[in-house]
Design a binder for these strands. Structure first.
Length: 454
DNA sequence: TTTTGAGTTGTTCGA
DNA sequence: GTCGAACAACTCAAA
C-alpha cells in the first residue's frame, strides 16, 4: 500500500508539540513518522536504557494514533528503502549534533541522494543549535558563564505551532522492531516513570506550580523533590527545552533564572562536544594524573557498598530508579575519581548504562568536570568530603535512609556516621572500604606529581 | 595590546 | 560554632 508522503525520521525528538521538523514535513503533505532501531546504538545499550526508549516509543505511537512506523536495521539502508516503499521524495529530520549520530546522518543523506530523495533538517534538540554561539572573535566559548550570557543574548525561537489538520500516512512496522520494543519493556529491571509527552508536560506543570519558586534553594537537596526530573524526557526530546524556556520567560524570580541556567549547561556541553568531538573519549584538558585500574573497590562503588552512606545511597538510587540526584552524582563521581583514584570513563560508562536520562555530552563533561580535566579550570584541591556533603545537603539523613535500609535505625544525621553509633553496623551495613582523609591526601599528591612532571 | 577580573557546585585550618 | 584565609596556577573574556 504505497502512499505518497514525507518521511519524518524521529530520533531525539520523540514528541508532537513544538516540533519544527514535523511542521516542515506537514507543509509538504502527508507525514509518515518513523523510528529506526539502529543495532549500532541499541545492541550495546543496557536494559534500563532500552526499556525507557521502548516505553517512550509506545507512548509516541499512541500520540500518533498508532501511525508510528517502527523499523530495524542500518538507517542508511532502512530509511531509503522505506522512503521508496511509500513514494516519499523528502525525509525530514531534526539536526543531530552528537558526533556519532551526525556521522550516521551523513551516510543516510548520501544514500538518499543516490535515489534522488531530499534530506531536510529543521530544528535540533537544543534551544540554540550547537556551534551558533561564538565570542566576538568568532571562537567557541570554553568557560560556562560567558557562554551562558552569550547564549541568552543569542536567544531562541518561539515554540513551533503544531500543524493543523495533520495527515498521517501509514506503513507497516517491522515485526523484528516490534519484538525488540516488547522485549525491552519486558526485560526492564526497574519501574520506569510514566513515559511520553503528556506525562512530561504534566510533570513540568507540577514543577512550575510547586517547586519553581524554591528551585534555587532546593535543587541541591537530594532528600527533597526540589528538581523538575525532566531530564529523562529531555533525553529523547519528548519535551523540547525551547518549550520550557517559553514557559519560564513570563516568570520572574531566582528559581526561573536558575532553571534557565541549568538548561544552559545542557546546551554548553553540547556546544563543547560540537567543537571538540574527541572530548567524548578523551580528556579535554589532560592532566597526566596516575589512575588505578578498576578492581574490587570499583565493584563496591557500583553496587553501593563503599561504607560511605551518601555514596552508597546514590549508587543504589541509580540502580533502583535509573536516576540520581545531581548533587549526589557529583559526590559519587568525586569518590570514584578522587578517593578510589579511578579514571573517569569507567564511572561515566556505568552512569550511562543505568541512567534513563543518560546524555552523552552532559555525562561525559560532568565527569570531566569532577576529574578536573574538562571545561572548568578546576582547582586540583576540590575533593568532595562525602560526610560534609551529606550533612550539608541531606541534613536529616532522609535520603540515605530511603536507599540504604541497613541505616534506617539511625535517626537524623546520625545515618551519615554509622561508625559513631554503637549499633551502627547492627543491620549489616558495610564498613568503609577506604579512609577518606588518607585518600584525599593521596589524590592531592597525585595531582601534584602530575603537575611537577609537566 | 595589555591588563584585569573571574571562574557552578570545596575543604581545612586557625583565629 | 563561625568565619575568613589559604589551598596554585591557568585560561578565558572583556575592558
Amino acid at each position: 500500500m504505497a502512499e505518497a508522503a514525507s518521511l519524518l525520521w524521529l530520533r531525539r525528538d520523540l514528541r508532537r508539540a513544538d516540533h519544527p521538523a514535523l511542521a516542515a514535513a506537514a507543509e509538504a503533505g502527508r507525514v509518515l513518522p518513523v523510528f529506526v532501531i539502529d543495532p549500532t546504538f541499541f545492541d550495546d545499550a543496557g536494559p534500563v536504557r532500552k526499556g525507557w526508549l521502548a516505553a517512550t516509543l509506545e507512548a509516541l505511537d499512541e500520540s500518533f494514533d498508532g501511525h508510528l512506523c517502527l523499523r530495524h536495521g542500518d538507517p542508511a539502508t532502512v530509511v531509503p528503502d522505506l522512503a521508496r516503499e511509500v513514494g516519499a521524495t523528502q525525509v525530514h529530520v531534526s539536526t543531530e549534533t552528537e558526533p556519532g549520530g551526525a556521522a550516521r546522518d551523513g551516510r543516510v543523506r548520501a544514500a538518499l541522494a543516490d535515489h534522488g530523495i531530499d534530506w531536510v533538517e529543521t530544528g535540533s534538540p537544543y534551544a540554540v543549535t550547537p556551534g551558533r554561539v561564538l565570542n566576538r572573535t568568532g571562537q567557541p566559548y570554553r568557560v560556562f558563564t560567558p557562554f551562558s550570557r552569550a547564549w541568552q543574548d543569542h536567544g531562541w525561537r518561539a515554540p513551533a505551532t503544531e500543524p493543523s489538520g495533520l495527515q498521517l500516512a501509514t506503513a507497516p512496522s517491522h515485526p523484528d522492531a516490534r519484538r525488540l520494543v516488547e522485549a525491552a519493556l519486558a526485560a526492564c529491571p526497574i519501574t520506569l516513570p510514566p513515559a511520553g509527552e503528556r506525562a512530561a508536560l504534566e510533570r513540568w506543570t507540577e514543577f512550575l506550580d510547586d517547586a519553581l519558586p524554591g528551585y534555587d534553594g532546593h535543587r541541591d537537596r537530594p532528600d527533597l523533590h526540589g528538581t523538575s526530573r525532566l531530564s529523562p524526557y529531555l533525553k529523547f526530546g519528548v519535551v523540547h527545552p525551547r518549550t520550557l524556556l517559553a514557559d519560564l520567560a513570563g516568570r520572574a524570580g531566582k528559581g526561573a533564572q536558575r532553571y534557565v541556567t541549568e538548561l544552559a549547561w545542557r546546551e554548553f556541553y553540547a556546544d563543547v562536544v560540537h567543537h571538540n568531538p574527541d572530548s567524548l573519549a578523551r580528556d579535554l584538558n589532560p592532566l597526566g594524573v596516575d589512575y588505578d585500574e578498576p578492581g574490587e573497590a570499583f565493584d563496591a562503588w557500583r553496587e553501593g557498598r563503599t561504607g560511605y552512606p551518601i555514596v552508597d545511597a546514590g549508587m543504589r538510587q541509580l540502580l533502583a530508579i535509573g536516576w540520581m540526584h545531581n548533587r549526589v552524582r557529583m559526590i559519587t563521581a568525586s569518590f570514584l575519581t578522587k578517593d578510589l583514584h579511578a579514571w573517569w570513563p569507567a564511572g561515566a560508562e556505568h552512569f550511562l548504562d543505568h541512567l534513563i536520562d543518560g546524555d552523552l555530552a552532559s555525562n561525559t563533561h560532568g565527569w570531566q568536570w569532577t576529574a578536573g580535566t574538562g571545561t572548568d579550570a578546576a582547582p586540583y584541591f576540590r575533593v568532595f568530603n562525602p560526610i560534609t556533603q551529606a550533612e550539608k545537603f541531606d541534613p536529616d539523613g532522609a535520603y540515605v535512609r530511603r536507599y540504604v535500609p541497613e541505616l534506617r535505625h539511625l535517626a537524623g544525621a546520625a545515618a551519615h556516621r554509622p561508625w559513631e553509633a554503637a549499633d551502627g553496623y547492627a543491620h549489616g551495613y558495610p564498613r568503609r572500604i577506604i579512609d577518606h582523609a588518607a585518600e584525599r591526601t593521596e589524590a592531592l599528591d597525585r595531582y601534584q606529581r602530575a603537575r611537577n612532571r609537566t
